[in-house]
């Protein structure tokens, strides 16, 4: 009985290692580009994509800034007289 169980475990172990080998082979055969090329691809994307949270490089036209527009609109609105509230 023990012997059989042991053999089953061994077979399972062998199976696992073979699976690992398959994955390692897959990984080894994967096409890889040098890191320098990858960096270049990333730099190109960064350089050509407008990013308005970096005002140093990209200026957001004021009319496109919804937040500033709304704030301006709020300031322009006539202010309600700031009276005191009465507790009844």
């Amino acid at each position: 009985m023990n012997h059989e169980v042991n053999e089953q475990i061994q077979i399972l172990k062998l199976k696992r290692i073979k699976e690992l080998i398959n994955r390692l082979e897959e990984s080894l055969n994967r096409e890889r580009i040098p890191a320098s090329n990858a960096c270049e691809l990333i730099i190109n994307y960064v350089e050509e994509t407008p990013d308005y949270l970096i005002p140093y490089n990209w200026k957001l036209p004021p009319e496109r800034n919804k937040f500033a527009q709304y704030q301006k609109y709020q300031m322009m609105k006539p202010k309600r007289p700031s009276g005191c509230c009465t507790v009844v």
Partner: peptide
């Protein structure tokens, strides 16, 4: 099988050090 897996693993490590030829900071 273990031996084969280990050899493959080392091959991958070697390949990886070969591809990792630069850091982003030096590329930029």
């Amino acid at each position: 099988a273990q031996y084969q897996a280990r050899t493959l693993y080392n091959d991958i490590l070697r390949l990886k050090t070969h591809t990792q030829n630069i850091t982003m900071q030096s590329a930029a």
